[in-house]
Computed example of a mutant assay.
Amino acid sequence: MNTEHDWITTPVTAGILRGHIDLEATARGLLPHRLPARARRQIPDGQLAIVEAQPSGVRLAFRTRATTIELDTLPTKRVYRGYPAPADGVYDLLVDGRLAAQATVDGGNVHTITDMVTQSFEPSEGPVGTARFAGLPAGDKDVEIWLPHNEITELVALRTDAPVERAPDSGRRVWLHHGSSISHGSNAAHPTATWPARAAARGGVELVNLGFGGGALLDPFTARTMRDAPADLISLKIGINVVNTDAMRLRAFTPAVHGFLDTVREGHPTTPLLVVSPILCPVQEDTPGPLMPDLAGGTLRFKATGDPAERAAGRLTLNVIRDELTRIVKQWTADDPNLHYLDGRDLYGEADYAEFPLPDEVHPDPAGHRRIAENFARLAFGDDGPFAAETS
C-alpha cells in the first residue's frame, strides 16, 4: 500500500457492485458469485463450482474525484501441473465508460490442476494483493473496475484519495446472457474484451454474464437463476457444452431445452429472449463428443472422440443441435412472438474461421471475440434486431 495519500477506505458492498448474482461474506471480505447459494449447493462438479465464482462481467461502479485508487483482493489462480503458469488476471478501470488503466494482483491462492479432464486440483494459500491505479484524470467521474473474468476474486478493501459515492442508476436496459466458456471469456485478453462485454458496450446495456466455462448444460438451477434475476433482455447460447461433454442424447436434449425455456419464461413471460446456437467449431460440427485435450506438440488443442455414425442413434453434434434448436424455436414462436433464434455461425462462421482460426480448435482468440461482439451487436442490438432499443 502506498502511503503518500490521506486514504479514504470505502466498504465494498452490494451498492457499488454490478454484474453479480450473489455475494458471499468470507473471512477477508466479499466473494462475488454468478449463481445463488441454493444453486451452488446443487452443483454436481468442481468445474462449474470454480467458474461460477470467476467474476466475468462483475465490476465495481462508483463516482469519485480520486486520481489514485487501490483495490485489495485475494485472487485464486489456476495453474496446470507441468505447464507454465498463466498470466495474472487483469483488472480494467474505466473512466466515464472508456478504458483508462489496467492492473494485476500478485500472490493469492493457487489451485494446481492435477487432472485436466476432472479438473481436480491441489490448493495452496497465498497473500492478499493490491490492484493500484494512479494518475487518473482529476474531477468528478464515473469509475468502473471490471474484475478478472478468469480468476476467482475476493474483494478485501477499496481505498481512494477522494471520497466515493455510489454511481447513479445508468437507466440502461439489463442484458442477462447465459453461455459456455466462449461467453465466459476464454482466451479474451482482458475483462472488457470478452465478446459479451464488447457487445454490451456497443448496445448500451448493463451486462449480467452467466457464461460458465464448460457449464452451459441446461441445468435447471441455472434456468431458475435466470428466472429470478432482473432482466430487460435475455439470451441463451446453447449447445457446445452439451456436445463436447457428451452429456445427453437427442431424446433428452429436446425436453431439456423446452424445460429451460419454460422456467425462464415463468419469471420473464414477455421479455425479448434470443436463443443462439453454437458458433462454427469444425472439430464438432459432425463428430460427437466427448471432447478431449490433445497436448501433442506441447500446445493445448482439443479433439472430438465420438463416432459420427452414431448420430443415427441420437448422439449429438453441432449440426444436430442447430437443426433441433431451429425446430424448437419455430414451435415456440407460434405462441411467443418475443422469442427469437440466431444461428451462431452468423456470429462466427467459415469466413471468420479462415480469418481468425480457433487456436485450440474450440475457443476464439482476442480478435475472434471482437468479431463475435461486432456481429452480435449488429444482429441483436441493431435496428432490426430482437434487442433493438424502443423508439418513442
Rank of each mutant, 00 (worst) to 15 (best):
T68A: 13
G349V: 05
G179D: 04
T160P: 09
T270A: 15
L147Q: 05
N187I: 00
D142S: 10
A162C: 10
A200C: 00
T287I: 11
G344Y: 10
R78A: 07
G215T: 07
M226D: 06
P357A: 01
A354E: 12
I8A: 11
P84T: 09
V257F: 05
E355S: 05
A61K: 12
L300V: 00
D383E: 15
T26N: 12
L17H: 04
A309I: 05
E266N: 03
G135Y: 05
K237N: 13
S186M: 15
G306Y: 09
L60W: 05
T225R: 13
A49N: 15
R327F: 06
E390M: 08
L94F: 00
R38G: 11
G368H: 04
L273R: 07
L291N: 13
K237D: 12
F356Q: 05
G46R: 14
P75L: 00
R41Y: 15
A49H: 13
T263W: 01
E266L: 15
V205I: 10
R28I: 00
G203R: 04
T64I: 09
D115M: 02
L291E: 13
N244K: 07
I152Q: 12
D22L: 01
G171E: 03
D161T: 04
D92K: 04
G298A: 05
P308H: 08
M226G: 03
D294V: 00
G203N: 03
Q102M: 09
V79Y: 14
Q284T: 13
W332G: 10
A167K: 06
Y353F: 09
S120V: 14
G129N: 01
T270I: 07
E374I: 01
G204K: 05
D142I: 09
E350Q: 13
P137C: 01
E125L: 03
Y83V: 04
P44F: 14
G19M: 08
T26V: 14
H184Y: 02
A53D: 11
G298S: 08
R301E: 04
F302T: 00
D352H: 02
E390I: 08
P86G: 06
H178G: 06
H149F: 14
A223M: 06
P86K: 02
G89Q: 05
R370Q: 13
R38F: 08
L17D: 06
L147T: 06
M116Q: 15
L273D: 07
H184G: 09
G204Y: 07
D343A: 14
P220N: 14
V174C: 10
A193K: 11
R81I: 11
V51M: 08
A313E: 15
N375G: 00
A256I: 05
S181V: 09
D307E: 14
F376H: 01
I152Y: 06
M248V: 08
L318Y: 08
P196S: 05
V164D: 11
T68H: 10
P44G: 14
I328L: 12
V276G: 05
A201Q: 14
D115I: 10
G29I: 06
P196E: 06
G314E: 15
N375I: 00
L358D: 15
T68N: 08
V264Y: 00
D336H: 13
R63D: 11
